[in-house]
Every structure is written in C-alpha cells, then in structure tokens.
Design a protein around this nucleic acid. Sequence first.
DNA 1: TCTCGTTATGACAGCGCTGTCAATTAAGAA
DNA 2: TTCTTAATTGACAGCGCTGTCATAACGAGA
Lengths: 339, 339
Amino acid sequence: MKVTITDVAKKAGVSIKTVSRVLNNEPNVAEKTREHVKAIADELRYFPNLAARGLATSKSFLIALIYDNPTPNYISLIQRGAIEACREARYHLVVEPMSLVGAASYDEKVKLTREVLDRLPVDGVILTPPLSDDKAVLAVLKELGVKSVRIAPKNEMALPCVGMDDETAAYEMTQFLLSKGHERIGFIQGHVDHSSAGLRYAGFARAMRTAGVDVVDDLVAQGDFSYESGVQAARELLSVPQEARPTAIFASNDDMAAAVISVAGQMGIDVPCSLSVCGFDDTPLARVIWPALTTVKQPIYKMGYQATKELVRKADDLSGNSQILDFEIKVRGSVTALK
Amino acid sequence: MKVTITDVAKKAGVSIKTVSRVLNNEPNVAEKTREHVKAIADELRYFPNLAARGLATSKSFLIALIYDNPTPNYISLIQRGAIEACREARYHLVVEPMSLVGAASYDEKVKLTREVLDRLPVDGVILTPPLSDDKAVLAVLKELGVKSVRIAPKNEMALPCVGMDDETAAYEMTQFLLSKGHERIGFIQGHVDHSSAGLRYAGFARAMRTAGVDVVDDLVAQGDFSYESGVQAARELLSVPQEARPTAIFASNDDMAAAVISVAGQMGIDVPCSLSVCGFDDTPLARVIWPALTTVKQPIYKMGYQATKELVRKADDLSGNSQILDFEIKVRGSVTALK
DNA sequence: TCTCGTTATGACAGCGCTGTCAATTAAGAA
DNA sequence: TTCTTAATTGACAGCGCTGTCATAACGAGA
C-alpha cells in the first residue's frame, strides 16, 4: 500500500540507511547518490512514516498549542502563524484547549496539565495568555522537561517568550489621546490574570504622569477583556454628570472598546464628537464597528510564527531569550481632537 | 525516563501482552488480573506511547481539521467541538489550514491536498466549508481512502456530512421579516463556492414566493461573506431613491449584516427605524454591534463535535449518513415592524 | 480420575524508521 | 605501487507496542 523506505531503497539500489541519510540531510553521502535517491523518493511520492520515525527517535514532530478560552480571533491568528512555522520545519500542530482559569485549584491545574502532556508527548509547547502566566502550568512544563515558548510580554522562569511591549504601546496610545487635547481620560483595565493587562495600565499611567495629568481613580474601571465587562465598565464611567464625564476612554482591548461605543450610543452620547474611544489589539471588529476603532495593532500572527520557529529550531539553547515584536497604532474614526 | 508497558508488566507480574490487553479493553483477561494491572498502570502514571502504538496498528490516533480561510469564530467553534469529541475517544486534533479557494487550479488543489495528507497520515478528516464542497479535495480524499466527514448542509459523493438546514432557516427568517410587514426585502448573497450560500438564497426566495411577494432583482446583491463585500452590497442596495429602498435587508451572514448597519449609519439611515437588518450565523459580533443583530444561530460547536464523533466511531460503516442539526432564530433589536 | 473444550496468558515477530558500528571504497601521501 | 586516512555505505539491533499463535490453567462432564 503505502510506500516505505524499503521500496525507495530497492528501487534506488542502495540500503535503507542511505535513503534515511538522504532524507534527513545527513552528511557523508556522495552527491550523486543523494540526487539519485531524492529523485526516486519524489517519483515514488514517498513520505517517511511519522510514527516509525517518532518511535526510533523518540520525537513526535508535534507541537502543541495550549490555550484557555482566548478570543477566537486571537487564537486563530496565533494558530495560523504557528502552523506556518510548523510546515516549514515539517512539524504538525495539535491544539489543546484547557479550562483552567478561575475554576481550578493549583493542584487541579497541575493534574489537568500533566494529563494533557502525558497523553500526547509533544516536542514543544506554545503557551498563550493567560496560561503563559499560570504558575501551575509552568511548573508542570518544567517538571516534564517539555520545551516551551510563552507568548507573553515579559520573560519568566527562564522560559523564552515572544511578545510585544504592551507598556510602551499603551503609553504611546495615551500620548496620542493627550495630544488630541484629552485630559479626562477614562481607562478600562483587562483581566487580572493577564500580565499584559497590568502592563497596559502601567503604560497609560506613565503617560499621564509624564504629561503632568493626574490619574483619577473614578476614571479607572475594572474589566476582564470581555464585551460584557466592557458594558459594565462603560456604564460606570459614563453614568455621571456630564461635567464629570471623561472626554475619552481607553479600553484595554477592542471588545471592551466596542462595548463603550455601544453603551454610549444607548445613552445618547455621540462617538467620537462627545466621546473619543480607543482600544487595543486591532481585531477585525475594530474596522467593522461604527465609528471604526482607533487601536493598537498587535503582531499576533507573527507571535505564533516566531514562537513556533523557536521551538522547532535544531539548537536546544532556547534558554530564556525573549523576542519583542513591533506594534503599530491604528488611527481611525473613534478618536477626535477635543474642541 | 518515560514509563513503558514493560515497566507496568514487570511490576504487575504479568506479560506485556496482558497489559496491552487490559489497556485496550480486550476480552479474555481474568477480572482480577484486569483490576490489578489497571491499578499498577495508574500508580505508575503510564500512558501508552502513541508512536509505538501507531506503528503497530498503522493508525495515528490523529484527526485532521482541514479548513480554508473561514471566519475565526466559526473555525474556533468547530475546533472546540472536534477536540471535545477527540478527547472522549483519546484522539488528538491537528489543524491544517489550506489556501485553495480561488487561487489554485484543480490540479494544483489536488497536489496541495495530497501533500498535506501524505505528510501526515491521519485516521480521519473533518472538512469545513467551502472545502467540503471542493471537488478536488473530495477526489483526493476518496483516492487516498481517508475516512472523512463533511461539515455541509447536504450529502455529497456518498460522504457523510453534518450540518444544518440552511434553506429552511433562511425561509423562516424571511417569514419573520414578512410577518413584520416588510415586503421590499433586500438580500445579500454569500460566497458562490459555499453551498450554504445558495441554500440560504433559495430559502429566502421560497418564502417570498410562498407569501406571493416578488423577488426584485435590484434588491438582490452579491457578496462573499466578507465584511467588505457587505459594504459594497449595502451601498448598491441603499444608494437609490428613498421610495425604491428596501425596508429590510437580509444578509447571508453576520459580517455582511454588520456592514449594512455601518453603511446605513454613514448614510444617515436609522437602523432599525428606517431599515431592518438581519444576518445569519449568530457570531459574537451579532450581540456586540448596535443595534444587536437578529440572526440565525447555527449549532457550530455541535457540528464539529458530531462530525468528529462520527470519525472516531469504531464502526467503519459511515457511509453517506448525514446529520441535520437544529437552528434557532435569535430575535434582537435590528428588526422592527414596518409602520 | 482423566479427557475435552474453554478461558487466560505469554513468547515472539514485526510495524518503518534511526543509531551504532563495522565494512567497503575512494583519495592522498609516501 | 602500497599504506594511511577519510569518505561512503550497509548490516543489524531496537524504539514500544500489537497481532498471531502456542501454551497453560481451569472447569465440566464421563
């Protein structure tokens, strides 16, 4: 049925070991032999059997993408990037969603994570937020000695990471609002489990401080990155006398920013004339709502790609090096200068 | 390092074959032995090596989810359902996005598909639209004898499918609009490669005919399920004298419906007072935009789950049986009765 | 008690590949 | 030419599991 290495070897008139060498780009094969074997392999449309190869090398050629309930758009971009990198290295991506956040205790988390990794021994793991900051998950990864890369804004536990500089991005976005004359700027924080949430707030606060503007407690609301939490937070921020109302709101992600626009609409507050709004992430949503959202474009696809690239790299020296990718501020209709 | 079947056998004082039998629930093992072996395996936290098992059985315990550029939300739900079913059967899901639509010729498509499946021999394939209707892909699947389930509204090529009745859903949604007094109803069609697009239009047309209302050609616009195409189509439908304008627009999916709402907003047409809008899919977007979208809720998660369930079923008799799942019409603010 | 039909268990080969190491060949050096 | 060294190739074991088939143990009936 399926073509095996033996078939190729026979047809090429060499031993299976030589074929193996050619296929794995090992040295010490005569150039002529190499070409010949390659040609035969192509002709026979031979592909090595992953299971056999895996058994012999105790590798699986599988990379796991472990995530917990992120937004579909985010995970789908990460995934796409990861798969691209996998393909280039002849790896495959298996996806493993988990349900750890909030619900489970530390021990429970350890157990669940271990189970996933025991059942399917992979060659590498990509962790997305908020799992990339989860102590239990990281502990298991270390215990099992699984190569892993975190998608996260900052290095942790000597594990390599790929991310962007959330703090600076938020800083620059806040500067942008300030440059438009806004001073009463509301801020909606993200989920406390995501380290990026804290960094975004920090960037906002730093920009305000730098500009000599006080951060008013009443203008900072807690959200959790969900649309619903954005609705809640927006109501809090906007249900005050008009003179106490912020002239701009910076939400920690696009979903919550969309919620602000929606709530403002319901309250008869015109966006952007009476209220400027900006978000973070540049999800497709940002261009789809009206007015289009001013937001920070994250290089999500690239994060997935780079993280995976790092995992499939031959060298095993992926010790704690981190990659910070560029962001971009997308200026759209939801922000105007204060009159 | 890793605990093997031999370790379990030694510790349990039986042969590896007996352990194997227990683990695979094979008959002819004394109940006492079975319990004992199970206990030892648990104690040792033993999990069979997938590669070895795969090599011996020539199965991979892998299911591939093959898709081509669908909306992130859609694929993410399908994926979630598929993974759930995989877990129950101790399978794993590998994702394989392809880029076939539009660009590639038939032969090119065959080549690319074959390459994906040759490189990673999986035990089953889940096809999502529009690939579930792609002749080239289906031909390769048949040629390679790969078990597969299509996520699609109707049976094809004797391949089992899981889907929903798009035609009836569109019919009922149109009836709903008609019941609200709308007669000048605009329709935005979906991507021609998706069989569901045609069925949705058919359902719309049937409802109109049944109600004795003519389908006006000028009120039917072509889209391709993308937001951008929705903008285009909406402009077409709305850039006419007010008396010629539709009083309601039924877009073939939510993204295009969102585009209609956005375009209407820009043109100063109030939704829903001057224009009712409804969509299809019930993406998160539907609840996030303002006004919230009246739409058809597809059981997307369940489709992924059922399709995978079918694939991992022991029996190999999955010949052309199709499952039609229920839909639900979600009435929200974007549609009002015609005054 | 012995025999026969089951049921339970184990020995062993082999799945398709790679790692190790030995054998062969080619290429220089003397 | 002959010896030495390096480059090239192949034989074979073994990765961890399951399938096949032989063997052992167990009961039931004579």
